[in-house]
Design a protein around this nucleic acid. Structure first.
Lengths: 188, 188
DNA sequence: AATAGACTAGACCGGTCTGTCTATTTCAGC
DNA sequence: GCTGAAATAGACAGACCGGTCTAGTCTATT
């Protein structure tokens, strides 16, 4: 808001893409809708991005950055290893409770994008791989092996899909409980 | 193959829908492709179904029936309560290992269909509710409470998404291990 | 043989999709 | 103020979407 309170077109496009892809889905969001919401001309889109697929990849990357920030913020507010680990599921419950919650953008993208080694799939894999790596670090801090991280990842993804399909945010609490039990079983 | 080796158009449509929706996704499968694969005229489709959405619902129901059959078959081949419970994840590993595995049709459908109380969403919810009910029964047989069923459901759904995104069928083995630990924790 | 109904083949409709094109406007730096 | 790059508005193309309609074939029953 210093000199310009309006962001450049490329930025507006990415932000609109993240929002609309999350709210309505990727395939369901047409180019025209995207342009209207971003307040950008069509030619500007195709100047900054090769294609819609290119914008999809960029939107996934942006969402990934945002996710990593909030994840790190959650970890930093806790210091006990166990609390850090279980805090993941506390954060999930808050996430699931948000009014606009429609599941995980990356898992949804995996479901609606075509098969094959397209860049979008790589972005999805990279995001999930990062999450998995974080859980591995948290598990090690808590004195557990990498097997626990795999199991936590299952609970993490499972909670997302359960919350989305049932609309019940409290599934995260059951995931948290299970995570605690699995941690106890590992470290005993 | 008794009198007629060719099935009626409605049946061919449903079978083609189940196959194509599973292989390529629902939105990605156009009407024309569906008709070609089923070997059915367009008018026949709209005689037997009100719309594509109607066919989607019917395809989900059919897939649900098939799933229930294979699930029941898995349960019946095992008699020890613990083996029955863990057998779910053995079945998953076989499922994930199939060449054409592309995740769960119902979870994928939830991701790519629009929000709102459309019949397709009800079919998805009913399917997942049935699975959850089965896990509850198996958990009770094994002497555990309903909380375990919730946790097993998380592992079940999580394994599907992990197997789909990573392409690694062995995630089911980790899910099985976690299920065993959670069962032990409950019944102790 | 006549008839009724199920099915097929394919043209056709309006709408929407991604992506291209031209022409105009805005605006910062000299 | 002038210039040139960047962004705008919006028409347009070509493909595909779901869905409708007409015309004709095939089969089974009467």
């Amino acid at each position: 808001m210093a000199t310009t309170d309006i962001k450049p077109p490329r930025e507006r496009l990415i932000e609109a893409a993240v929002r609309l892809f999350s709210e309505d889905g990727i395939r369901a969001t047409g180019i025209d809708r995207l342009l209207t919401e971003a307040g950008v001309a069509k030619m500007s889109l195709y100047k900054h991005f090769q294609s819609k697929d290119d914008l999809i990849v960029e939107a996934l990357r942006r969402k990934d950055e945002q996710f990593r920030e909030t994840f790190r913020a959650m970890v930093e507010t806790r210091h006990d290893p166990r609390a850090r680990l279980l805090g993941v599921f506390d954060a999930q419950e808050r996430w699931f409770g948000h009014p606009g919650f429609r599941g995980c953008l990356f898992l949804n993208a995996a479901a609606e994008l075509p098969e094959g080694g397209c860049p979008a799939r790589r972005a999805i894999a990279e995001h999930k791989s990062w999450v998995h790596g974080q859980l591995r670090d948290l598990a090690r801090e808590a004195g557990a092996g990498d097997g626990l991280a795999d199991q936590l990842m299952l609970l993490f993804e499972g909670a997302i899909m359960r919350a989305y399909v049932t609309g019940d945010p409290t599934v995260a609490r059951e995931a948290r409980k299970a995570a605690g039990l699995l941690l106890d079983a590992e470290s005993s």
